[in-house]
Design a protein around this nucleic acid. Structure first.
Lengths: 190, 190
DNA sequence: GCGAGGATCCCCGTTTCGGGGGAGGGCTGC
DNA sequence: GCAGCCCTCCCCCGAAACGGGGATCCTCGC
């Protein structure tokens, strides 16, 4: 897969300066080569693509991150742009789209997969949760109590309650249970 | 859709004795004509296919119900066979499969869509919830309290608690919230 | 006809939740 | 450098949920 994509880009006139198999390696290569564009998979062992994007902004401010993944929804898209990525392409997209995306972000613009864009511009009813709020909801969905969640996240049970209340507020839920259900239904947590 | 299927069956040598647009009508026709096989959609306005199957067993004991729907999972499959249906076919299946299914159940045997069967014979980890348990979890996911659920279902809040506890038990959940999350994840409720 | 299982209801003491409030520290982007 | 957001923690109150028990009734299948 990695080889195939690199090969395709190379024959299409894009200079491929490096390849990496995981997040650590990707970051190292990005810092080292300072490429114009870094094509990064969201799902990777260790550091995921989003995290790579966040860190790369410091390590290589001139590099545009182009996320390349098999799946995307409103939530990850929003998070991705928060992380400062330059574009987002689905693996199912035709290879020409990938090429266009690379060139677009290389030019400093933003590229979003058209399929994804269609679903993202619709009524983005799904509220934005902070990472902490999501952590808490996830653990809540696994049946942990405030106390247990606190231990898990190294924060106090009171703080946990605070996050839950904020999440309930954002999701328009009357109970913590409804908040978890809403988050699940809207793919805000898994 | 209805017409197309009827047409196909007719030209394939199956005698189509009646058609119906909803559950009520289907039941009436089944009772009236006592067909060997009734091809029924699960999702219908008013009485759904499962309910039609249950009632048809009384109204027409000799009729085999063949459910025909666009979507299916372990849970509905299990419920379907509890309701006494003779077979289950997905709309995505090739038309030949539909034909085979009709002939199979007409012969008094059971037919299950091969795609569905594959997923159903796997580790059926999803527990069985009673209708009442599902009702309660659904309302719980909508943020209602025990009291409110009770009013909604015309039962006491204590009874509601009882169902929730049973559902928690079946789902291996420690909290009502986890029970709802588990039910959502396993498509036991929507 | 008898057992299994579903649906219904109840009690009681303990814990947690829901809903307010406030408050400080830190990073970040403009 | 300052506003804004996130993370963190704390207090109070009344209401609700929890845990674990038991109990009755009815229907359906064998």
């Amino acid at each position: 897969m990695l080889e195939a994509v690199a090969e395709f880009l190379a024959v299409s006139g894009i200079e491929v300066v490096a390849r990496a198999r995981d997040g650590e390696e990707a970051l190292a290569r990005i810092a080292e080569r300072q490429p114009a564009v870094a094509l990064v998979d969201v799902r990777m062992p260790g550091i995921d693509g989003l995290e790579v994007a966040r860190r790369a902004r410091r390590a290589a401010p001139g590099t545009s991150i182009l996320l390349y993944t098999g799946y995307g929804d409103r939530a990850v898209l929003a998070e991705a742009f928060d992380a400062g990525v330059g574009g987002f392409v689905l693996k199912e997209a035709p290879l020409d789209d990938l090429l266009r995306a690379v060139r677009t972000v290389a030019a400093g613009k933003t590229y979003v997969d058209p399929v994804l864009a269609a679903s993202a511009i619709g009524p983005s009813t799904a509220p934005r949760l902070t990472p902490r709020e999501r952590d808490v909801l996830r653990l809540l969905a696994d049946g942990l109590s405030n106390e247990e969640i606190g231990k898990e996240l190294f924060i106090s049970a009171e703080t946990v309650r605070g996050y839950i209340r904020k999440a309930m507020d954002k999701l328009g839920a009357d109970t913590r249970t409804e908040a978890v259900a809403a988050a699940l239904r809207q793919n805000l947590i898994a």
